[in-house]
Design a protein around this nucleic acid. Sequence first.
DNA 1: CACATTCTGGACTGAATGGTCCACAATATT
DNA 2: AATATTGTGGACCATTCAGTCCAGAATGTG
Lengths: 194, 194
Amino acid sequence: MSKIVSRAGRPRSFDQQVALGDALDVFWRKGYEATSLDDLTEATQLSRSSFYAAFGSKRELLLHAYRRYADAFYADMKALADEHEDTDVALRAVVRALVDTRPDDRGCFCVNAIVELAPSEPELAELGRAHIQRMCALLEELITQRGTRRPVARAQAATLMTLTMGSAVFRKASVDEDTLKFVQKQALGLLDLA
Amino acid sequence: MSKIVSRAGRPRSFDQQVALGDALDVFWRKGYEATSLDDLTEATQLSRSSFYAAFGSKRELLLHAYRRYADAFYADMKALADEHEDTDVALRAVVRALVDTRPDDRGCFCVNAIVELAPSEPELAELGRAHIQRMCALLEELITQRGTRRPVARAQAATLMTLTMGSAVFRKASVDEDTLKFVQKQALGLLDLA
DNA sequence: CACATTCTGGACTGAATGGTCCACAATATT
DNA sequence: AATATTGTGGACCATTCAGTCCAGAATGTG
């Protein structure tokens, strides 16, 4: 994807990772189709040629952005879990972070991308599935650590991820915060952590 | 919106309701931005002029389609609930229908529309919120009928709707059916109906 | 039958789309 | 300093977009 060594020539005057972050932000706020090349070049401060040299196309950029977001999200949750010695405390922290109660009209980037593009972009659908699976596995592992038997832990993990994505839709529809608090409490209750 | 009487002139050669249904189907499959006027005129078999005469604009048509879908969805669920004398049986049927386990890459039209358009279309966001609220109220009413106290019923209803929308995202990402069955079972378990 | 009214096909429009291209700028190597 | 290599700005392109418009077709009314 990126050259490791270059024998000569003018060096890049921008940080590709920063530009990727800026682009992700636009996709996150506006969605894929509604984001134009002009939006992207403005947000990243790149000329069209630099943009295409760096990212190939709008579609490839989206896939990059998705991977970056999903990886960061997973890493954050894993770090949050590892922060706490006590499994119950870790689990409570993770569930609270997942079933967020703060209104956010951007929602969850993964949910946005899956909903908009999964049917027409099998590659992205696959990334989405992988992300969901990875998150479920993380939760399942945490849950089994408190003595819950594997099959039950699996069902609970899947349910928590479903609540996570559902609450992202709620937040995007600006459902009132109290309702989201109910949902979060029920999610914790599911694990006897209420 | 539609003329009740016309004093004369050439009559319409198409059924507006049928055309609306056809258009809904396209929006449902492809999303709003990705649906072109050509897609819509092809699906409805209308010429551009008939299309604009009947629906005003692409945006207005979407709002019509959304209302129609949401109303039909609510009516279906209400009918399903009324079908059964026993509240537990009714509740079980409704939850099974909501937290569907059949893969469907179109997902739920309401979820699709909210996720794609809520931030840029406040009017649609409002319709989305109203739909969620109405569905929650229906569930809440059913749950209180089995003796559950109001605040608990409200929390459970909100949770069920969250699971409904989350599972729509799962289905769109083609998450395996077994996982969706787990989620459905947990949803029923939440109400001690497992 | 003539007329008023409405509907319809398709040509048309200006704007915006994603993407390409090239002359020139900037730097590392020799 | 000459050269090779890469980056950059902006003009440019064909295509597609949502939406308009009008000439003519079709039908009810008198």
